[in-house]
């Protein structure tokens, strides 16, 4: 008997929360980005867990798509960061707060 699915779900909830925490508190854009990836991975883990619990391969297929989208997102996101850094030479998202009220 393997580890019950609920344990995996608790673990992914924890991972998602940590990712959210990182996104809310860190100022470095790159680290905010990584936190985002953590959250995505938490969701992936949930998908796979449910796939096993329900005996359906659909969950894993969905993870595959999430991976593709995440890869695309990272490429574009890092491109944007590069473009901004080239002008401002700063890695802090807070420095981009020129749109504040």
């Amino acid at each position: 008997m393997t580890v019950p699915g609920s344990w995996y779900l608790i673990l992914s909830a924890l991972l998602f929360s940590l990712g959210a925490l990182g996104f809310f508190t860190r100022r470095n854009v790159l680290i905010m980005f990584m936190s985002l990836e953590l959250m995505l991975n938490a969701v992936n883990l949930t998908f796979v867990t449910f796939s096993r619990m329900l005996g359906d391969i659909g969950g894993q297929t969905m993870v595959f798509f999430v991976l593709v989208v995440a890869a695309a997102e990272v490429v574009v996101g890092l491109g944007i960061i590069m473009a901004i850094f080239r002008r401002r030479s700063s890695a802090t998202a807070d420095d981009l707060s020129i749109f504040r009220g």
Binding site: F23, M32, S97, F99, R100, G101
Partner: peptide, 21 residues
Amino acid sequence: VGKYVRKVQSGYIRNYALYIS
């Protein structure tokens, strides 16, 4: 009103993300 409300518009992405969540 705007003088106080405008502080909501901090310009910080993570701040906005927090409000959204």
